[in-house]
């Protein structure tokens, strides 16, 4: 686009304002996590004591461990199922409306609706809820996201090379391993990282499908409980760590598969 100085100035101002809006709240939170004083909002000197107190908080550590279990297991299952689903759909070029809706639905259905649906379902089955029910629930939306990332990659995939490979006598396994997989691998890994990030951060569905007690309290549930009981510098420290983890995962995902954030 052509640009005059005035226009360039305007554009720069917009960018500065928007990025300020997006990053100031986070920056304040991160800065206050290093605050010495007990008030979560007033600066009184640098300290790492809130991080130290986190390390000694067994409820938070166990919640972190639970979150890791949920995220790893649900990501593993979702990556496998989501990738197979993507290959199945794209290879057969079956774009039935119902099928599309089924795959798309988990991404748009309001969390609260899926959450209460699963709560009703599990309690009607008389299933004792716990980490396993959170995992079952998280796979639902994770597999949809993995599938859409992998499908995007497969759209440009030339299926004739699969046939060529078969014609040349390669077994199905060899074809998948040597031909299909290398092409989609970056998308699979990116999808997995995306799923992992979503699962680590997911609160509402976990809140409704968790069982009693610490055994199935995830980190976001713990954070919600802490926020409801008031703002403390400990939450700031925890928030900083959680953000650092998700941002690292997303940055990796982005490097592997540019396009996941829309580019």
């Amino acid at each position: 686009m052509t640009s005059s100085p005035a226009r360039a100035f305007g554009m720069r101002t917009i960018l500065i304002l928007v990025f300020a809006f997006l990053y100031i709240p986070i920056a304040v939170l991160v800065a206050l996590s290093f605050n010495k004083g007990g008030l979560p909002t007033a600066w009184s000197g640098f300290s790492l004591k809130w991080y130290a107190s986190l390390a000694g908080n067994s409820a938070i550590l166990s919640a972190a461990l639970n979150t890791l279990i949920v995220a790893l297991v649900s990501t593993a299952i979702a990556t496998l199922l989501g990738t197979l689903l993507a290959i199945g759909v794209e290879m057969r070029r079956q774009y039935g409306k119902g099928l599309e809706a089924l795959i798309f639905a988990p991404m748009i259905i309001p969390d609260i609706v899926l959450a209460i649906a699963l709560l009703s379902f599990f309690s009607m089955l008389n299933l004792t809820m716990g980490l396993h029910t959170i995992i079952l629930a998280h796979v639902v939306f994770n597999l949809a996201f993995v599938c859409s990332v992998v499908r995007a990659r497969l759209k440009s995939f030339d299926w004739s090379i699969v046939e060529a490979s078969a014609d040349l006598g390669a077994s199905a396994i060899t074809t998948f391993r040597r031909v299909t997989l290398p092409v989609i691998l970056p998308a699979v890994v990116a999808g997995a990282l995306l799923a992992f990030t979503l699962s680590v951060d997911e609160f509402i569905i976990a809140f409704f499908t968790a069982g009693a007690g610490r055994a199935s309290t995830t980190l976001p549930m713990q954070i919600y409980a802490m926020i409801r009981f008031g703002i403390t510098p400990e939450i700031n420290a925890l928030a900083t760590i959680v953000m650092a983890v998700s941002i690292t995962a997303l940055t990796l995902s982005q490097r592997l598969n540019p396009g996941i954030t829309g580019q």
Binding site: L29, D201, P220, Y224, A239, V242, I247, A249
Partner: peptide, 11 residues
Amino acid sequence: WSNYLIRTYAW
């Protein structure tokens, strides 16, 4: 991609 609760808490 950072936690929704945390972004809300920041406010």
